[in-house]
Every structure is written in structure tokens, then in C-alpha cells.
Design a protein around this nucleic acid. Structure first.
Length: 256
DNA sequence: ATGGCTTAGTTCCTAAGA
């Protein structure tokens, strides 16, 4: 089974590309981020017409996450993360689909840093880590899939220098990502490509796509029970080059 | 390069993204 994470950067603007991807590639489970859509305007009819069931956690204008499953509707376990009741950002949804626990997450960008947005990012990472521990304790196949907004290693970016002051690769962000993985999760892409040099995002600006100036920030973390079933992982890079594409490419893992 | 795009909403400008 193929499990995908895909930051669509606006599901209304990206709907033709998304439906195209579902139809052409037929992935089993798709975690979406940056819907930029309220719950009421989520295009469920079009997604169902493509053969997918969906659950979502939307918000007007920004953020928003969803989980799609081919031929079935995922069963929601949780929307949002505990620990900060006043947090109104829609950045986390967790469901059971295809016998696997799947979470779609959109980790805060955190720029500019330092500042309140960066502080929020770090707090959100701590809250995610707490939830991840609960999932690991269940000892079931689980996948934490999403846009982590963390460049974990120097070889996960085209240019360390260009990104050195960015919230995506500050030591505090990296330490928390490493600690999360260190709980017992397997970074699927890192396992597949241990030397790095694989990108999942290319900026719209400055011809980043044409220059292949990207970085890897979309990650799939596997519980031990899921990691045991990993076949391979990759990036469906060609979709980044299509007309009216998202600035992220679909990123995936296949499990037995 | 506090930004050369792109999206969405308070839409003809601003905020946010990464």
C-alpha cells in the first residue's frame, strides 16, 4: 500500500492537480496539508467522485489537513493536538485507514525567528512529541505524515548558507525533530536515501524549480510495526513541474 | 535578497508561506 503526504497549497486552486494525481497514481492513503479551506467548502464531492473517502480538519484561509483513502472513508481518531486549548490552527488530524493509524500534520513554519511564531513552532513540536509517544505505546502500524517544516540535516537542502537563518533549520527545530524520531520512529525517506540530496519542496520564487534548488521538509515517520513493512519510499517529483503545481511534491512510502 | 511567486480574503492591497 502506498501512503502519500502532499502539501497542496490551497485545495481549491489545486483540485485539478489533486484529482489528476489520484486518478493517475491511485495511492491508497493521501495526507493533505495547507487546504486553505473551511470545513464547509472542502471539495468532498469531487474527491469521492475520484474514488476516495475523506476526513478533514479545515480553517478559513490558512492551514487545514485531511486524510483520503481509496475506496473507504478513514475513521477519525482525533482532530488537533492536546496541550494548548486556545490554539485555533487546524494542523493535525489522525485516523484509522486500511488497518493503519495515520496522522496528517502541518507543523508551523516558525518564521521569522526568533519571535512568537518560532516559539509557537517549538511548543507545537513538543505537543506532537507527546501524541507520538501515545501512538508508539499502542504498538500498531502507524504513520506520522506531513509537512514538518524542518530541514533535519545539512544534506536535506540545496544550500545550507541560504537557509541558515531560517526557522526550518534552527538547532531548536532540528533537536526536536531528532528527539521525535529518536522515540522509535523511522524516517522513511532518510532510510531510502541515507545520503540526502532528495527534495520535496521547491520555492515558486527565483526559478527554484528550474535550478533544482529545493529541500526536504515533508516527512513520513513510521512506527516499528509499520517500518517492518516498508518496501520503499520516494518523491513523485514530476508533479512539481506541472502547470499550476503546488510548491511541494507528493512524497510517499510503500508498505507491505 | 524583510525577496524575484502564489494563494486567499477584509480583494485592486495585505498576510502568509518557506
Amino acid at each position: 500500500m502506498k501512503i502519500v503526504t502532499y502539501n497542496v497549497n490551497g485545495i481549491k486552486a489545486r483540485l485539478p492537480r489533486l484529482i489528476e494525481y489520484l486518478t493517475e497514481d491511485q495511492p491508497n492513503i493521501v495526507c493533505l496539508q495547507e487546504l486553505k479551506s473551511s470545513d464547509e467548502t472542502f471539495p468532498v464531492a469531487e474527491i469521492e467522485a475520484a474514488g476516495y473517502g475523506a476526513v478533514w480538519h479545515g480553517q478559513k484561509a490558512w492551514n487545514g489537513v485531511a486524510i483520503l483513502a481509496k475506496g473507504a472513508t478513514p475513521v477519525v481518531r482525533q482532530r488537533g493536538l492536546d496541550g494548548e486549548p486556545e490554539d485555533e490552527h487546524s494542523r493535525y488530524i489522525e485516523a484509522e485507514a486500511g488497518g493503519i493509524v495515520v496522522a496528517a500534520l502541518y507543523l508551523p513554519n516558525g518564521n521569522p525567528q526568533p519571535g512568537p511564531k518560532f516559539d509557537y513552532k517549538l511548543r507545537w513540536m513538543d505537543r506532537l512529541a507527546a501524541r507520538a509517544r501515545v501512538l508508539l505505546a499502542e504498538e500498531v502500524p502507524a504513520v506520522l505524515a506531513g509537512d514538518y517544516n524542518v530541514i533535519a540535516n545539512d544534506d536535506d537542502t540545496y544550500s545550507v548558507r541560504a537557509m541558515q537563518d531560517d526557522a526550518l533549520m534552527q538547532p531548536e527545530s532540528r533537536e526536536r525533530y531528532r528527539a521525535l524520531v529518536g522515540q522509535g520512529w523511522t524516517d522513511a525517506l532518510r532510510t531510502q536515501f541515507p545520503k540526502g540530496g532528495v527534495w520535496t519542496f521547491w520555492d515558486y520564487q527565483a526559478g527554484a524549480w528550474q535550478r533544482d534548488a529545493g529541500f526536504r521538509i515533508d516527512h513520513l515517520l513510521l512506527s516499528p510495526q509499520a517500518a517492518d513493512r516498508m518496501i520503499d519510499a520516494g518523491v513523485d517529483k514530476a508533479y512539481r513541474g506541472r502547470d499550476k503545481a503546488s510548491d511541494h511534491a507528493p512524497t510517499w512510502v510503500r508498505l507491505r
